[in-house]
Design a binder for these strands. Sequence first.
DNA 1: CTCGCAGATGACACCGTTGTCAACGGGTCC
DNA 2: GGACCCGTTGACAACGGTGTCATCTGCGAG
Lengths: 352, 352
Amino acid sequence: MTSLTPRRRVPGPTLRDVAALAGVSLKTASRVLNDGPNVSSATRQAVQEAMESLSYEPDPAARSLRAGHDRTVGVVVDSVGDIFFSELAATLESVLDAAGYSCLLASSNRQEGRERDIVRSLVRRRCAGVIVAPTTPASISAADLAGTPVVFVDRVGHVEGAASVVSDDPGMAFEATRHLLAHGHRRVALLSDSLDLPTTRGRQEGYRRALTEAGVEVAPELMRMECDDESSAMRQVREVLDLADPATAIFSCSSRLSLGVVPALHQFGRTDVALVSFGDFTMADSVQPAVTVVDHSARRIAQTAAEALLAHLPPHDPTHGPTGVIEVPARLIPRGTGEIAAPPTPQQMSRA
Amino acid sequence: MTSLTPRRRVPGPTLRDVAALAGVSLKTASRVLNDGPNVSSATRQAVQEAMESLSYEPDPAARSLRAGHDRTVGVVVDSVGDIFFSELAATLESVLDAAGYSCLLASSNRQEGRERDIVRSLVRRRCAGVIVAPTTPASISAADLAGTPVVFVDRVGHVEGAASVVSDDPGMAFEATRHLLAHGHRRVALLSDSLDLPTTRGRQEGYRRALTEAGVEVAPELMRMECDDESSAMRQVREVLDLADPATAIFSCSSRLSLGVVPALHQFGRTDVALVSFGDFTMADSVQPAVTVVDHSARRIAQTAAEALLAHLPPHDPTHGPTGVIEVPARLIPRGTGEIAAPPTPQQMSRA
DNA sequence: CTCGCAGATGACACCGTTGTCAACGGGTCC
DNA sequence: GGACCCGTTGACAACGGTGTCATCTGCGAG
């Protein structure tokens, strides 16, 4: 009972076996494995042949233990199941894989405590580095990292020497809203989630600024900040369209919400309502009319973040990687819904 | 240059420190850590207090190296970015996390070679177990696993003693098709991807069998097996609707394709066409009419697979976990599109 | 001819943990 | 009272690599 044999693992060849076969010492074999200096080409070749013939693979655990780091990058996102983060994760994985790193992926479920636990555990694992979508700017501290390089994604994290790769939330929200205003809309509804994330705040801020600069009143009844899933988004859409002075355009703050807004508009038969979605999504360019979006591409953020992290990892000089906030260019993709003109207002009609 | 210090890692407390503080030997501390037998309660408590006060955390690498296994489960899916697999992965992660395992997630991108490489690398890492969506039934062999417990998901994998958690593809496809036939349809189009996966084949088979049993001709021009993304699905929808003897119902073999079919039908204004989707998706019950789906819930498959794997892992007896093909019950969820009746055919009309 | 130096190689300790086995002390049973 | 046993404990080696330092060889400089 004490010695229940959990199905015997078949041990692979070790570096010792390689060394023995090549007729050299363990250390020399190690040098060849790591492209170390001072190895004669004859020796190097002998060892390489031995590795080949045994189909030797180094043991990551042993390496990690001794060397203090390994070829794994930890990735912490809100949820792997979320459309945005799943794309982000997929891209991170492919970029890091190309650089010889594997990914340890975990979901924080937006809980700060869980996020910190996960990061600590990744650090304990001697991950080469971590990539985190922080729930709050200060959710992760330098102490949690214990020197492990980190790059934040999607939201800014405050850790000395760390980079944060984000899109320009206020700026792009500003542009999206201005785009709607430019098509004559004065009643632009804002759909946003209720969370107090910097991302969310930034987008709300951009919306407000665009209205203000255009001299349009910021109407509280048009700002709907309780949309946490598709169905609540649908409900809010109905409400802003049913107002006495109804919305004629909608700015949806996330692709998740847009997944509720689009069906809602279709269901109500209101394809005359303008819409810009912050965040592209699968069906955006196949629905009719196609949805105008701000593309803050998960792919591009992931690509940039992965490269930023790699610059902090060996063989690069870890002190010279990028630092601070990196804004990934986002762009407005006009596809149809954003270009729907506002109907003439009663005032305009009477004035004419 | 040789000794470039990659930002000094701060080493955490080791078990040795704990032992020293508690005034016991390293081994005794280890015994407490692992709930080993034969430790006096006084000693146990002293060690636990020492661990507490140092906030000690065991080192997974060292543990893995010495014990030959660790608390990590490798997960290999087609792509983390795919809607189905991202949900699958999210659920696996949460179930395994609750059992104290972390996940190492990787995408095979449906390449058999890459899949095998990933699995081998996971095995080398001494993962406690792996969960794989195999590209082919024989893509992974017992030799690749070297004794590591495995559970296959979504598709059947052939490895002695391994469980495969799948939904009843032929059966549910049969039922979906029969559902459409029961509403009077005789021209039911099949939309499927071109891959030669058992899953795909099973669904095609169920479709054929339903038609045959109902005495309906299996029409080649209605079987569209070249749909590999949303846009090709849209194209195929147009084509089957434009036939001289057009389709009146569509059976879409995957949620990914349905994401193209639904917008296509909306765009063509053909909400009179019946549709059943194999696989639920976010917008399915919010579009109008809502989409009837076969729910082969990623969540349920993941849950079952995680439990099957856990049963093969310590502290359970690894030889007594479930084995063979486990079919997760799927169910047809009628929501609207599947219940649209067929228009009377010319034959029926003239006969009347 | 000797010294020194650099390239090549290996012996050994060590990373943090767990398995093996021996030692110790106290009680039980003849 | 001695043999025996069991619960408790610790010394030691080992897992598979890498860092440190010593050793050895050959060769050009003085």
